[in-house]
Design a protein around this nucleic acid. Structure first.
Lengths: 231, 231
DNA sequence: ACGAAAAATCAAAGATTTTTCAAAGGGAGC
DNA sequence: GCTCCCTTTGAAAAATCTTTGATTTTTCGT
């Protein structure tokens, strides 16, 4: 996943240092030197690192403005370590708070934590690409109708693709053969469990290393099939 | 909104101090003195304050288990201020990290921030979501047809699942063998008490630590079975 | 504390469901 | 009309779950 992080500080040195740290970790970086710029750029970012002390529009004000249109995580940076500032920042809609001079390792850890938290709670949906599904080494790009397993593209037939799409886009949810049939074929299911089971086998042969011990496409005996979320 | 906060520390003094701070702010408090208790109680909490250093199940392990069934915010407490610990904690699914000795004001601010963030991103509704049932460390997600006990997923057969679903969705209500049979099998019950009792045993073997002393699935002698609501 | 009733336990037979294989049926493109 | 590939079908094998009956343990009323 490719995250873009907005960094905002009036001190160029800090800005550059932050950029280096973040790029080393593989993040994209958007720079801003004042609150106004930050507000404008926040919409494109997955996370905002915001200096509290800035001329014109300070960090707190900027955060409040950003919160009016976005739930993006905000981490405050401040030279002051007093608790009063800290609390103010947290109550104004910030997600975390780091005092300068900061330890780069801690900063990256907090960035990572905030992003993970945001993704976990589903906030990322707005910004992350639609039509992408992933579990373990299995990735489906629904825009390109492409399925990749451990970096290798696999060719599924249309039916196989649609079945897998149904299952992976409802990760962990169990579908009976009848439900799969009705959803994919768009017609009432009569006795289709055999048909489905054969398609399942075909899909497994293509996406699983060992179809007998499926990692992703699992059976729930007596209920149906599901694609499990492998972390 | 009335938030319940689970605090877990093996040091009673810290536990009591935390309780006082939190209650003053109007939060409900659930106390636990080890990781195991924390896992069981986490389902009832809106936020978890977890000591990292604890005997048997440490905070990090407990957090991982809790994440198996809940997105509740977790804030770690630790006497160590080293960054390594800090990072480990944050990457293991924690939402924040506070070093002991902590400043009560900062602690409350971080608690408040985590709760606000959680509510803002919509995580709060999850605990009361449709199809979710919970008692103590036992959680059933009816959408995913998944049952988790103390953070460990257990595999129930379809019948076992349906029986447990009937009982847990009618918490504390007693069902006779005949009622269970008719509800789950959808056919009149003749002499089925043996059949049911075997299924009950199978379920207990899977969800109870000690099936002879069931925590959740209890018998009411002469009447039937029930799942009790463990707070 | 005793005996009857209820519940728990155990292993094995019985019943279902899923997997697998091979082959027949169908449709799109040439 | 032919070919190739995909889809469906049927039947047998394997895996898994359910029920049963016999036996032991627990519970409760007397």
């Amino acid at each position: 996943m490719d995250y873009r992080i907005l960094i905002c500080d009036d001190d160029e040195d800090i800005l550059n240092a932050l950029e280096i740290y973040l790029r080393q970790e593989g993040y994209g970086v958007i720079k801003a030197t004042n609150g106004g710029e930050a507000i404008q750029a926040a919409g494109n970012a997955h996370l905002v690192l915001l200096d509290v002390m800035m001329p014109v529009t300070d960090g707190i004000r900027a955060a409040v403005k950003i919160r009016e249109f976005s739930n993006v995580p905000i981490i405050f940076l401040s030279a002051k370590s007093e608790d009063t500032d800290r609390i103010l920042g947290l109550n104004m809609g910030g997600d975390d708070y780091i005092t300068k001079p900061f330890n780069p390792v801690e900063l990256l850890a907090r960035v990572k934590a905030a992003l993970r938290r945001y993704a976990r709670l589903g906030g990322m949906k707005e910004t992350s690409e639609k039509g992408m599904y992933q579990t373990g080494g299995l990735v489906m790009d629904d825009n390109k109708k492409r399925v990749v397993v451990d970096g290798e593209e696999v060719n599924l037939t249309a039916l196989e693709y649609n079945i897998l799409h149904l299952l992976i886009s409802n990760m962990d949810k169990v579908f009976t053969s009848g439900q799969i049939y009705e959803s994919v074929w768009n017609e009432p299911a009569f006795h289709v469990s055999k048909t489905i089971s054969v398609h399942i086998r075909h899909i497994r042969e293509k996406i699983e290393i060992n179809p007998k011990e499926p990692r992703y496409l699992k059976v729930v005996y007596g209920l149906g099939y599901k694609v499990v979320n492998v972390k």
